[in-house]
Amino acid sequence: MSRVEIRVTISSDQDIVLARQKGRSLALELGFSSGDATLIATAISELARNIVSYAGNGQILLRDIQNSTRVGISVTASDDGPGIPNISQALRDGFSTSGSLGLGLPGVRRLMDEFEINSKPGQGTKVGVKKWRP
């Protein structure tokens, strides 16, 4: 059950900045340290950039989450782009089809606690990540 739900439409590089700023403020609001908020904002930046580079547009959904013991933040990046044909390849360091460093997805996985990806060619991509407050 989440109380906060922030939706950011991503279609340009300006939206990347907006999404990570909103993510940082939500993380701080939820009691994350400013160091953790930086990790979360960096992950959001990478996810939003993937949307702009590969799909053109999509959205980032920011929510607060809680389980029996902890609170956290959930970030879901979704688009209706071309999808990822080979997910395990995309999760490998140094792999990129866009001429970038290829650290995006594996990097995001390292920055966050939980990572989930769903993508099929022609059916878009959905990446969900979570970080729990220590």
Partner: peptide
């Protein structure tokens, strides 16, 4: 904090 995130990201 930025340095920490950069290293995590690789």
């Amino acid at each position: 904090e930025v340095a920490f995130a950069m290293v995590q990201l690789g």
